[in-house]
Amino acid sequence: MDFSQIIPSLPSLWDGMKLTLQLLLLAVAGGIALGTVLALARMSNSALLSGFAKAYVNYFRSIPLLLVITWFYLAVPMILNWITGEFVAVGAFTSCLVAFVMFEAAYYCEIVRAGIQSISKGQINAAYAVGMTYSQAMRLIILPQAFRKMTPLLLQQTIILFQDTSLVYAVGLIDFLNAARARGDIMGQSHEFLIFAGAVYFVISFGASSLVKRLQKRLAV
């Protein structure tokens, strides 16, 4: 084993990591936002809304993420083409981002729903009793408490998502893993670069989940 070429390659690996992190942050933000909307729809009194949200969640939870990534890579440009009537170059990054947001929203939805349900009914009653509307009660009283409770779960899901971003390899996006693969091939040290990439993923995921566990313990007190 010869890891000598890793140090000189760090800049290009860092470029890959930047893409990974960028994709991660946008996907988390979008996924939690859409997931929250889905959770509220799922718990609404309207049979139509809650039925739609339930079907959405079941659908995305029963298919592989890799399938969604591959499909959206092929389909998003076509769909945009139909909508706008002209050819739009979408790029793999955007189609992957859309895939991640829509897919992860299904998982975040279930976390948010459990979080909201863990807040006692008395809290929403108290919010209504002081005259708040549904949206005020959710925004000011229920969601702030729910998000606090589910922070560890949301973070854990985010760590899983961090690892899953490596699947963009399938559509040729140069994320951290793909950068390491490409660079390793050029340098003739593909094994070493792959092991290094694995070690970096490990350190970040393990470090982050240790922090989450500590946070969880603190919140439990």
Binding site: G122, Q123, A129, G131, Q145
Partner: peptide, 16 residues
């Protein structure tokens, strides 16, 4: 509801 005050068995102050 804003014109009627209500006090609950379990207080229901907003803990956050």
């Amino acid at each position: 509801r804003a014109r009627i005050g209500m006090v609950f068995q379990n207080f229901e102050l907003f803990p956050h």
